[in-house]
Write a protein that binds this DNA or RNA. Structure first.
Length: 590
RNA sequence: GCGCCCAUAGCUCAACUGGAUAGAGCAUCGCCCUUCUAAGGCGAGGGUUUCAGGUUCGAAUCCUGAUGGGCGUGCCA
């Protein structure tokens, strides 16, 4: 419908040029928008105001000329009436039967209604969550998970070919700290006595992994505590203590005393147990991934070395103080960055360069990374590396998600995986349910700081707008079911034939609302803003509830009844489609 | 210090990316269930869009500055 009006206006612009009112080289962007206020008609354009300079005419005078030309047209399609208003808006009133035409589209396309092709089949890799597998996901990760998954669905609806990926940081010091923590807890279970390192992982899940380790291997991996701790730097709080040095020494001891094979056993049980837990957790959150990409695999297959060589070939690598530096300042970064440390170890940044290069080599047109906003300083250097390797940095889109600031009873909550003080995503799901949590997270636009009051989320889960939307869906099911029970089951064909019986304001409102859905998808997708879907669905649900209260659907008159039931069935379809994008279920009963 | 992000009703957030009278939900106050699910509907009150300038037909939105908050500023991952 919007497209039709754009066509009409393009036609008008051409005529204005022909008449010499507009210069030949004028090529205005034709802007047709939905009106906010019904007295302004259904659609409006600001064309006259945009062209006021080019035409050298005041906006209202130009608008009158435009309206004149439109009214002179033979075929005005769905346009019933055109009006000029305000400073020079041209308002279009659309014929009712044209408004209800959308219902047929909904049934024709079913779950595909709303899809568009702005993506044109381009392939996208959406990487998100990617939390270190050193502990369970906490509620902070939940926002990234809900947002990333919804963005991915949204892009798919918009005609992109989408894969979702979780980058598993299974290499590096944090994982060694985890392995060492598991082993130390295991030693304690075996009866060894010592103080647990202040910098170790202290969560309960570490005990559980250690217990499993003991069940599987008995005392095979046991070493005396005095042997483990001799020669180890003192911990924080002790004289000359240094918690970083303390844990690093313990890692070395752990590796030496166990030997490579046994260390790998401990390492693997920690990694695998936690990764399995994360997978299961995300599944329960209705979030799935095509790939779980291992950082170690990058190292082992030499991709990191290859990437460093590629940078070297670009001449942007230099050596200083025994380390290899990447000259990212040449690409606008604040300072140069180390890729290989003086001790020969590659930095995390090095594997990240390799990882992004690898993503492009796999043939993706667009890379989307969903990161916590605390990593924003990281963006310029990754883009710099991509540019240095002759890949287009524009191909990478980093979406930053602001931290959820957690409160419990008005108190701000500090969270740290290391200390074991955090609320897990699983706890949240258990208490408020996956649907409510998914919706809650994605309701806010991602760059908004979000206050997350846990008590509120739990105690008032009934106030979560997700139920409002689901209720609308269930209500429709219920009405249709009762109509059938009364022997007045919906006859959709008859309904389609009698849509002219729909005369209430609520009915046209709903139809107009349905017609907006594909636009909302397209707009939300290119902006990476799933919250727009959430707001749209709230509006649509409101339209339905309002309609429900305004009249009876199951009435004696066949034509009216079938028309009304047909309309709400279409609404139900769109509610379902929208909820699916947000990863929320659409229940038949509540 | 420098860089990025944010600031809208009492609270939590929208505002179709520069459009018309800035909208929802909570919370407050009125109504509406012998009628298809009241997890609902209808209505009222509540605003100098943090502040000061600027850009233009037109600004919550863009620019400059100020104030307040978050984050970053490792040869950590």
């Amino acid at each position: 419908m919007k497209q039709q009006i754009v066509q009409i206006l393009m036609n008008v612009v051409q005529q204005l040029k022909d008449q010499g009112i507009l210069p030949e080289d004028a090529s205005p962007r034709i802007n047709v928008e939905n009106t906010r206020d019904k007295s302004h008609g259904d659609l409006a354009t600001n064309l006259a105001m945009m062209l006021t300079k080019a035409a050298g005419m005041p906006p209202r005078a130009l608008a009158e000329k435009v309206v004149e030309l439109i009214e002179a047209m033979e075929d005005r399609g769905a346009v019933e009436k055109v009006e000029i208003a305000g400073p020079g808006f041209i308002n279009f009133f659309v014929k009712d039967d044209a408004k209800f035409a959308v219902i047929e589209q909904v049934f024709a396309q079913k779950e595909k209604f709303g899809r568009c092709n702005v993506g044109q089949g381009r392939s996208v890799l959406v990487e998100f969550v990617s939390a270190n597998p050193t502990g369970p996901l906490h509620v902070g990760h939940g926002r990234g998970a809900a947002y990333g998954a919804s963005v991915a669905s949204l892009l798919e609806e918009a005609g992109f070919k989408v894969d979702k990926e979780y980058y598993v940081n299974d290499a590096g010091r944090q994982m060694d700290i985890l392995a060492t923590s598991v082993w130390l807890r295991y030693l304690a279970l075996c009866g060894e006595e010592f103080d647990f390192p202040s910098n170790g992982y202290k969560g309960d899940y570490v005990f559980e992994i250690s217990a499993e380790l003991k069940r599987e291997h008995g005392e095979l991996l046991r070493k005396p505590a005095f042997e483990v701790f001799t020669g180890v730097c003192a911990d924080e709080g002790q004289t000359d203590g240094d918690k970083e040095k303390h844990i690093d020494d313990l890692i070395s001891k752990c590796k030496n005393l166990l030997g490579a094979a046994h260390y790998e056993t401990v390492f693997a049980i920690g990694l695998n147990t936690i990764l399995e837990d994360i997978k299961e957790d995300l599944e329960g959150f209705n979030v799935s991934f095509e790939n779980w990409f291992s950082e170690r695999s990058l190292m082992e297959t030499g991709v990191v070395d290859a990437a460093i060589e590629k940078l070297q070939a670009s001449g942007k690598i230099y050596e200083q103080n025994g380390a290899l530096w990447f000259r990212s300042t040449d690409y606008g970064d604040e300072k140069d960055r180390v890729v290989v440390r003086d001790n020969g170890l590659k930095t995390y940044f090095a594997s990240d360069i390799a990882y992004h290069f690898n993503k492009l080599e796999r043939g993706y047109d667009i890379l989307i990374d969903v990161w916590g906003s605390d990593h924003h300083g990281y963006v310029p250097r990754v883009k710099a590396a991509m540019e240095a390797m002759n890949t287009n940095p524009e191909a990478l889109e980093v979406l930053l998600v602001q931290f959820a600031i957690l409160y419990r009873g008005g108190e701000k909550l500090a969270m740290s995986t290391r200390s074991g003080q955090f609320v897990t995503l699983r706890d949240l799901r258990d208490e408020v349910g996956s649907d409510a949590a998914r919706f809650f997270y994605v309701q806010r636009k991602s760059e908004q700081h979000m206050d997350f009051d846990l008590d509120l989320a739990k105690s008032q889960s009934n106030d979560n707008p997700v139920y409002y939307i689901q209720y609308a869906h269930a209500r429709i099911s219920s009405v249709l079911e009762q109509a059938a029970e009364k022997g007045m089951a919906l006859d959709r064909e008859a309904g389609m034939a009698s849509l002219d019986k729909l005369e209430l304001d609520q009915e046209t409102d709903l139809a107009v609302q349905l017609a907006k859905y594909p636009e909302v998808i397209a707009r939300a997708a290119v902006a990476y803003e799933p919250h727009q879907i959430a707001y749209y669905l709230k509006d649509l649900a409101h339209g339905l509830h309002s309609y429900y209260n305004a009249c009876q659907f199951i009435v004696e008159d066949d034509t009216v009844r079938n028309a009304r039931l047909t309309l709400i069935l279409a609404v139900q379809q769109v509610l379902k489609n929208g909820l699916a994008i947000l990863g929320v279920s659409a229940p038949e009963k509540m």
